[in-house]
């Protein structure tokens, strides 16, 4: 990291105060012995991320959270929802929202696209805050450890969708349901309202190396839209199916369609409730 854990502690305390430090100190995480878990998560950097993203959460996007009581307090679970906004501020706001609305605080382990670990600095900061590369093995290990995952089943096509397709769910992957069934975890659908308008996208250019594409947004920075995060009731795939059912493509496909429909419903509800893009 460009700065040491000591600097991370000092910055998080200055920006976020004792509240942020206290929250980080109550985190339950599998310490591999030196203050990090096997994937690189560190409470000091979680506090830093909380403090930095918290300012954006409170002051810039002025996030309003609804239904966070549906987030399981313990045990493996998967949060699945829409992805948008050119830059992954929606994931960052979700991360802060979960951290602030769970007790004891839980770090939502975002499963990023496979190219993210190739990005210098970003990959390290993300890893310290609990993000993991999007491989099946990483997700399996986290599920077995009873962690809370955030998955955006739309993937890169979701975050790079054109403005004309806002709030229309793109091709919905099924891996999250397969994992939920196999590792006996409920799926909590969520919708992020606001992010789809934050950086209207004009075009995309082909990517290079591991980066799949380069977006061309209409604005250099995201607009200060108001975020509304809505969680739905957990879909109890863990209770409805046995782990062996994860091998049945029909069951997995139907489960994924149920999650998609729940997210679409939450999006419709959230859009109906909000009074305007910036309100």
């Amino acid at each position: 990291m460009p700065f040491s854990p000591f600097v991370a502690r000092a910055v998080s305390k200055t920006l976020g105060g004792q509240v942020v430090r206290n929250r980080a100190s109550r985190l339950h995480f599998p310490d591999a012995g030196h203050g990090y878990d096997a994937f690189g998560l560190s409470p000091d950097y979680v506090a830093l991320g909380d403090a930095l993203a918290g300012v954006v959460y409170d002051k810039y996007f002025r996030v309003q959270s609804h239904g966070h009581e549906h987030i399981p307090k313990v045990g493996p679970a998967i949060l699945a929802g829409n992805h948008s906004g050119t830059l992954p501020f929606d994931a960052a706001m979700m991360w802060v929202d979960v951290l602030r609305h769970t007790e004891p605080p839980r770090v939502a382990r975002a499963v990023a696209d496979y190219f993210v670990p190739s990005l210098p600095f970003v990959s390290t900061l993300f890893a310290r805050c609990g993000v993991v590369g999007g491989s099946r093995g990483n997700a399996r290990a986290l599920m077995e450890a009873g962690e809370l995952l955030i998955i955006f089943p739309e993937g890169t096509p979701g975050i790079s969708k054109p403005f004309s397709k806002r709030y229309q769910l793109q091709d919905w992957r099924q891996g999250h349901c397969e994992m939920a069934i196999r590792y006996r975890a409920p799926v909590v659908p969520f919708a992020v309202i606001g992010a789809e308008e934050q950086m209207p996208q004009l075009a995309t250019l082909p990517g290079f190396g591991p980066i799949p594409l380069i977006p061309i947004p209409a604005t250099l920075l995201p607009m200060p839209v108001r975020y509304h995060i809505c969680y739905g009731e957990p879909i109890p795939l863990d209770k409805e199916f046995t782990p062996e059912d994860a091998d049945d493509p029909t069951i997995v496909k139907e489960a994924a369609l149920r999650v998609k429909a729940a997210v679409q419903e939450l999006l419709a509800y959230g859009l109906k409730q909000r009074k305007g893009i910036f309100k």
């Binding site: 590369g133 491989s135 099946r136 290990a141 591991p210």
Partner: peptide
């Protein structure tokens, strides 16, 4: 590799 897990089991 990028697309492979960091936590490595024997099936890696």
């Amino acid at each position: 590799s990028l697309e492979l897990p960091v936590l490595v089991t024997e099936d890696h």
